[in-house]
């Protein structure tokens, strides 16, 4: 770590002395320091390309558009959930009450719907768990 501090010019005078003593005694550390200094020279010469000035003028508007869209998505999702739940409930109610559909078919449709609901809830729960609790989510695979 003293090598890193030396390359970046962040050593205290005491650490400089400590490193100097190590460098005198160890050729391997010497060559490691030279290697790191070369890399520092290359990366230190790099700067990021500035974007056109125009983007800074429009930047804030785009932030607000994103805020508004976020609100829009929340409202749309809430509305869709209510409408779908209402439709689903009425569909089930109609299916149970009707005499036009044979009993075994009613049972099969209900079983399929309950199965789909169980799978959906399970997948959503797993996704939420992975997103919030997975201790390895920032580990590089």
């Amino acid at each position: 770590m003293l090598v890193m501090g030396k390359v970046d010019g962040e050593l205290s005078p005491e650490e400089e002395n400590e490193l100097a003593a190590i460098l005198e005694a160890d050729d391997e550390i010497n060559s490691e320091l030279r290697r790191m200094e070369k890399i520092k020279t290359v990366t230190g010469a790099v700067t990021l390309k500035p974007p056109p000035d125009q983007i800074w003028e429009d930047y804030m508007n785009s932030v607000y558009q994103k805020v508004e869209r976020g609100v829009g998505w929340i409202l749309l999702s809430l509305g869709a959930i209510v409408i779908l739940s209402y439709g689903f409930w009425n569909g089930i109610k109609g299916l149970i009450e009707t005499s036009a559909v044979p009993l075994f078919l009613k049972g099969a449709i209900l079983a399929a719907l309950v199965g789909a609901a169980v799978i959906t809830v399970s997948v959503v729960r797993e996704k939420v768990f992975m997103k919030t609790k997975d201790p390895y989510r920032e580990i590089q695979r």
Binding site: M1, V3, M4, G5, V7, D8, R35, M36, K38, I39, K40, V42, T43
Partner: peptide, 20 residues
């Protein structure tokens, strides 16, 4: 911070072998 930076530079040195 220092150890991540060291790993990054070591990895760069390896990938740039022959040109640096």
């Amino acid at each position: 911070v220092m150890s991540r930076l060291y790993s990054a530079r070591k990895s760069l040195a390896k990938r740039l072998e022959g040109v640096v």
